[in-house]
């Protein structure tokens, strides 16, 4: 049971998010109204995606420096869970946008950032698919992963500062402004990010273990 504490923690945190996300106090705002609670579920997807992509980057660097096949597998599977989260984030964000900004898709720096992140990681998987030799595949994919991650950071970290955005906290800051979330909301939001990220890691480890079993069978 000892090695499972983090899975329990993730589950508990997400339950906490579901309960307090609906029942807790939220600031009353025009336009957003009650939908401000979507922050706990939509924005967390996006934060978790960044966490997972960063993990994938670390594994790719590890693979390039050590050539360990397991590191490449880890890089691939964390990226694929990251893609899952970003798709969920994109779909939920689109729905939310329909009811607050009035359209499913708006020309917004952050929205574009997520869409482009998806395109980049789709290219990552296409690249993986077009090479057969596992060593070469790991190397090329790792190199592309590092390049892609940096470009993604440029896109989501710098460009929103240069352009106007409908998302909160813009005009200089890609994160949340001080006034967008009160302390009550933070008490739910940050645990929610950790909770969803841990669930993502859990899913990733399951996939990694499955692949390891397949490797064993092949040998």
């Amino acid at each position: 049971m000892k090695q499972h504490w983090w899975k329990v923690l993730g589950v508990v945190l997400v339950f906490y998010t579901i309960i307090w996300g609906f029942l807790g106090e939220v600031p009353a705002r025009f336009i957003l109204n009650e939908s401000i609670r979507a922050t706990y579920f939509h924005v967390t997807m996006w934060f978790s995606m960044i966490i997972l992509m960063t993990a994938s980057l670390v594994f790719s660097i590890q693979y390039l420096s050590k050539g360990n096949r397991l590191a490449d597998l880890k890089a691939k599977e964390t990226a694929s869970t990251g893609v899952l989260f970003s798709i969920i984030g994109l779909v939920t964000g689109s729905l939310w946008a329909r009811f607050t900004w009035g359209a499913f898709w708006v020309n917004d720096a952050k929205l574009n950032g997520t869409a482009i992140t998806l395109l980049i990681y789709a290219a990552y998987f296409v690249l993986r698919g077009s090479v057969d030799d596992p060593q070469k595949k790991g190397r090329l994919a790792g190199v592309y992963n590092i390049f892609a991650y940096v470009m993604m950071l440029v896109f989501i970290g710098i460009l929103p500062r240069m352009t106007d955005s409908l998302h909160p906290g813009n005009g200089g800051n890609p994160a949340f402004g001080q006034y967008d979330m009160d302390s009550q909301m933070r008490m739910v939001f940050y645990p929610a990010v950790i909770g969803f990220a841990l669930i993502g890691v859990w899913i990733t480890t399951l996939r990694i273990r499955m692949q390891k079993l397949i490797w064993k069978k092949e040998n």
Binding site: I18, F22, L23, A28, N33
Partner: peptide, 21 residues
């Protein structure tokens, strides 16, 4: 701003929480 206070007052919000959970 209009909030879902009605849901809260008649206790229906707990149903939503239960379903999501």
């Amino acid at each position: 701003p209009e909030m879902a206070d009605l849901m809260r007052s008649n206790g229906k919000i707990y149903v939503v929480v239960a379903i999501a959970a």
